[in-house]
């Protein structure tokens, strides 16, 4: 897929995703800002495998930033491109607190998973890929591992209350 095609598709998806969290016209603006940022700061990123996660990250920050502004000021202010400092996400104390809370909830929930899920999660956190996990856990096929992982993810998500974060995208 050509980079232009990827960007067009991305825009469509981001608008729809943002619209489910923000008002419709703001969602359009937000998607546009994501694309501008991609073009201005990350124009060298063209591969699908890099572009999609980067766009997701920017869109998420934009939505969170927008929500915080609403919460703080009770008004809507356009988020400029320069508002987002991707290399420095930790600088925002609110983000840090949210991550800390999420990590605490995760820490509580992973311990409640079944034995197989805990083993699978451990191997994933140790950086093993699905092929290596298949060998380590003695699964007959990689599809078996995909299925185990899918169920374990569902189980963990349920333990977390259906959302990794409470109230954020």
């Amino acid at each position: 897929m050509e980079p232009e095609q990827i960007l067009l598709k991305l825009r469509e998806r981001i608008v729809a995703f943002a619209a489910s969290h923000l008002q419709g016209d703001i969602a359009e603006d937000l998607a546009q800002e994501v694309l501008i940022l991609l073009h201005e700061k990350y124009h060298e990123v063209e591969r699908l495998e890099e572009l999609v996660p980067l766009a997701l990250k920017i869109a998420r920050f934009k939505i969170m930033s927008q929500r915080r502004k609403w919460q703080r000021h009770g008004e809507y202010t356009q988020v400029s491109v320069s508002d987002i400092q991707l290399p420095d996400p930790d600088a925002n104390p609110a983000t840090l607190v949210e991550r800390k809370l999420m990590l605490e909830r995760l820490t509580q929930c992973v311990g409640q998973l079944g034995e197989r899920c805990r083993e699978l999660m451990r191997l994933k956190l140790q950086g093993k890929n699905f092929g290596e996990i298949q060998k380590r856990m003695g699964a007959q096929s990689i599809n078996t591992v995909y299925t185990w992982d899918h169920r374990c993810r569902q189980q963990l998500l349920e333990l977390m209350g259906g959302d990794w974060e409470q109230g954020n995208p």
Binding site: R60, R99, M102, Q108, L113, R118, L125, W164, P169
Partner: peptide, 28 residues
């Protein structure tokens, strides 16, 4: 796509090696 976007929050937490170590410890 929406599901992937929701995973982003988890991915950010797990990018931190310290958080990974904490979770591995919590797994027993």
């Amino acid at each position: 796509f929406d599901a992937l976007a929701k995973e982003e929050a988890l991915r950010e937490v797990l990018e931190d090696p310290t958080a990974r170590r904490q979770l591995i410890a919590a797994l027993g």
